[in-house]
Design a protein around this nucleic acid. Structure first.
Lengths: 205, 205
DNA sequence: CATTATCTGTACGCTCTGTTCACTATTTAT
DNA sequence: ATAAATAGTGAACAGAGCGTACAGATAATG
């Protein structure tokens, strides 16, 4: 059920409609502009700047997105689809560990981490952005981890009374915390440390 | 070295100086206004609104604070001094567990949690706010936990190769994550679950 | 050609920001 | 007393961004 179009834009029900079709090139330029601005400049994301950077009319942006952050979310989602792929081979522990380390590496890369900060800032400021961010960014990633955890619980690799949501929080929220707030070192070794710390709590007594 | 005055306001070196002394009542009204607005209204904190709510001149706010969020931070720091008190009795594990549960309860209370959201939003948007937030809010609380962890490592209650910062991240960042982003249930029982999950990773093998 | 929808460009009112200025108020130093 | 210094008020101003509206050009379908 991949939503290949945007999250906030008006959906296009039929495949072909009357009027002038949307210019996909323009859309790309706009998403690129947002991603670029969010990576280089700071958090000061606005329709004004994005439109200028993309060489598009501000009116067009208002037409398709409700806020610059929802626009940026679309950009990020398209640019990180690959990050949802994951092996289904190996033990549940190995797969979960790999996901933690993937997450650290994705978020520590500047071209993902910096825009994600802007996105999170929007999520804290704007309810709609928060909802979209959770639904389209956080939830799909949590679902992957949840799936692995449930697998492990069924096979007996993990204890059966785990609070899946809490485990996911313990494993992944430290990464966001470092990215967004403390900016403490965020590298592969932190992912490993984190995993080693939480893993003992997953095994059956 | 408690800074009894504000974080961002110009420090007062000598106890007595020349000119008209600052009106402490006015300062309180301003801090109250910020705390109230941050709790009731949304994140839309601004000098304009705060000044109006406090019945003060906007110029006065600009005089003492660089941003509405630094003002709010001052308000929050004064209103939560008590939360840094902690027992020094009992095992390190018991004390750390108590701090986790305290944290959940403080942050789940609307009159602390909501302003903290506004504060965090500011921290993501403004570098100065972020630095102040870390220095005056996060760090002192992390220091308490770090102290307990080091105690436990010395007495052998915890393993000696713990990464203190990572442990603190695992224990506390899920709380902020729920408060700020997912808004999943944040109650005492979540604190207990979290503790039970991470605690096995602390004990010597 | 008529219709429908996209995109552009301009313009306007709005709110908040950050700063300046003149003025009043209250304290200490001489 | 009077001067100097600092706090607070209130008004004004330019500037940025927002959100919206409108007129017109462009490009597809029926």
């Amino acid at each position: 059920m991949l939503n290949t179009m945007s999250t906030s834009a008006h959906p296009r029900p039929g495949s072909r409609t009357r009027g002038r079709p949307r210019d996909p090139e323009l859309r790309e330029r706009i998403l690129d502009a947002a991603a670029t601005l969010a990576m280089t400049a700071g958090i000061e994301l606005g329709f004004e700047r994005i439109a200028q950077e993309a060489g598009a009319s501000r009116t067009t942006l208002y037409r398709w997105w409700d806020s610059p952050q929802e626009l940026l979310l679309d950009a990020m989602l398209e640019r990180t689809r690959w990050s949802l792929d994951h092996d289904s081979e190996g033990t549940a522990a190995a797969r979960l560990r790999a996901q933690v380390i993937d997450a650290v590496e994705i978020l520590s890369a500047p071209d993902t981490g910096r825009p994600l900060r802007a996105l999170a800032a929007g999520a804290l400021t704007n309810e709609k952005v928060r909802a979209s961010f959770i639904e389209h960014w956080l939830e799909p990633r949590r679902a992957v981890a949840a799936r692995i955890l449930e697998d492990g619980m069924i096979t007996g690799e993990f204890r059966q009374d785990l609070d899946v949501e809490a485990v996911i929080d313990a494993l992944f929220s430290p990464i966001y915390h470092r990215l967004l707030l403390t900016r403490m070192p965020l590298g592969r070794s932190f992912g490993e440390t984190l995993w080693n710390l939480v893993e003992p709590g997953l095994s059956p007594s």
